[in-house]
Write a protein that binds this DNA or RNA. Structure first.
Lengths: 138, 138
DNA sequence: GACCTTATCAGCATTCATTGCTGATAAGCA
DNA sequence: TGCTTATCAGCAATGAATGCTGATAAGGTC
């Protein structure tokens, strides 16, 4: 995602208000490669804004998705995860025990649906998920 | 998955009881390529067994997973989907609108995590999900 | 800087998928 | 046929996510 200044500018350009709550969440997502859940984002935000509500975090994260600043991942870990790193295309490696997710910044050429199997589908995205156990969960 | 007879034999061998409810669900899954949700399986089962409970369907489906007869997929469509086709390795194409899932029986060579990025992870499975819109949802 | 309009917020209730729990039932063995 | 005990039905409970509403404050205007 872009810098806090750029994102807030984009929000204002779209008629959205750059509230302290939103700026706080945007700040917490800067250079964040931990794929946080909304819950963990919320808990971090509580440190800076003791009255922020979980609802606001959900809303903000969805707003940021609409603006194209983050992606919301469902990797089967039970809850939504926020992915602010859209600049470098990559795939994911997820721990089936603790839910930790790390980026695999590799492109796999030839990863497309053969025409025979398309059956009228129009494909937008390809997602590769490697699953296993991380070092501490082995 | 194997035939109804084979699966029930496997269950008995493992000390599980082959109840009519379980046999009904196993039958509904035979040659089923629709990736049904538990809810839809339950509704189909109600036609044959009007008193079966959703809870039983959940339990049975998990039991079948433990026996290695089915896989339970979370493709981000909001609910669990049952995959009885484990014989032919394949990936998935999912409609982001209606949740329909079809198999893509293609293997992609070279789909592995480069050692540089493993970081102590031991990888068990690779899953490729193509997302888009199916013909009727376009 | 003060004012006003209205998007946003906090907090709570609600939904939906899934799992926990318990007395009653029936599968499969002797 | 009878007995033991896994399984079932039905309901309550959990957890993630969303809907709702009065109160609040962001940001443009004067």
């Amino acid at each position: 995602m872009q810098s806090v200044q750029e994102v807030t500018a984009t929000m204002r350009a779209k008629g959205l208000r750059a509230t302290p709550q939103r700026q706080c969440i945007i700040r917490l997502l800067q250079d964040n490669h931990s794929h946080p859940t909304v819950e963990s984002l919320y808990e971090e935000a509580l440190g800076e804004m003791p009255t922020i509500s979980q609802r606001t975090v959900y809303q903000t994260v969805h707003d940021l998705e609409s603006l194209g600043e983050v992606r919301l991942l469902d990797l089967g870990t039970g809850s939504l995860r926020v992915e602010p790193n859209l600049e470098n295309p990559h795939h994911h490696l997820a721990c089936i025990v603790c839910g930790r997710v790390v980026d695999i910044p590799v492109e796999f050429p030839g990863l497309r649906v053969p025409d025979d199997y398309l059956g009228g589908f129009s494909v937008d995205t390809v997602e590769v998920v490697f699953r296993g156990r991380c070092e501490t969960c082995t």
